[in-house]
Design a protein around this nucleic acid. Structure first.
Lengths: 149, 149
DNA sequence: GGTAAAATATTCGTATACGAACTATCGTGG
DNA sequence: CCACGATAGTTCGTATACGAATATTTTACC
């Protein structure tokens, strides 16, 4: 159990995520939104008229979390939530004009996280592929189902 | 900017962290605590009489976050907070007997996350070393300071 | 020795994040 | 046609997570 709590490799994954989040935060705050709001708006723009459940899956968050995030985005006038005409349980989500403008400005601006991502992807191809492969192997181990649960 | 938001490699890091967190959660909840509380108690047991600032650094969280986590652990009777005699601004943290017992039971029990961590560390040594090396390279890129900030 | 700066931790406001419970609606089977 | 199970999303309670502001204490400097 200690080795699970004090593992250098697993710590490195946490550190990378934290660093990446901080870089995204710089861009997001430039536009007056949060990182999660930025990711959400980006996914909505890539999948117009998506529902909340689908969006939650894409963002890998629970529906209750996404419901709250959407609430705040609607309140800021960045996202529009409409009831689906064919199924009144469901909603459709899209960016408002203001939301599209915000995202556009974000993509046009100079972005530290973009530069760093490029720098990462400009590492040796075989190293990137090795990383992807090994990361997926680790993910498989971590998510493998067992009857012992 | 899009590539920063839709990058398969960076997504894999997020997925690994999420999966690892879920496994830790199973053990933590068996003991009636949360993952962050478990990590905090583990670090306090490894560094008895640590202060809040030092603990925040070890956990890679802000002092305000750790202050709240400690509040809840003290309230559950798992951690003890005392004022340092030599510096009344500072506090000393240690596990109570109940806290030590909880951690002991956790370490003795059968642990999914422990097994998976072992399975990961039993991957080919050269692959693990390669991963560590590449992860640290990526972390360096992400955290490199620039005058452009 | 007194004052200002620095250090330590806490509190506050806000945003996530989850699981459980709930509400409203749709689909299915008898 | 109706009752029930399933689905979609919302709300609630609780725990984090952060940055800013605050309070208290210590340290440094003149």
């Amino acid at each position: 159990m200690r080795d699970a709590l004090n593992n250098e490799l697993l710590r490195s994954y946490a550190n990378i995520n934290k660093a990446y989040f901080q870089l995204l935060k710089i861009d997001a705050e430039r536009m007056g939104i949060t990182v999660v709001q930025l990711k959400t708006m980006y996914r909505i723009s890539a999948h117009p008229n998506t529902g909340l459940g689908e969006l939650a899956e894409i963002l890998r968050l629970t529906k209750s979390t996404v419901s709250g995030v959407i609430d705040r985005l609607v309140h800021q006038g960045l996202v529009e939530r409409t009831i689906q005409s064919t199924d009144r349980r469901a909603i459709n989500l899209k960016l408002t004009e203001k939301g599209q403008k915000t995202l556009k400005q974000l993509f046009e601006g100079k972005s530290i996280v973009s530069e760093k991502t490029h720098e990462i992807m400009n590492m040796r191809k075989e190293d990137i592929n090795k990383l992807l492969s090994l990361n997926n192997q680790i993910l498989s181990i971590l998510t493998a189902r067992e009857d012992i649960y």
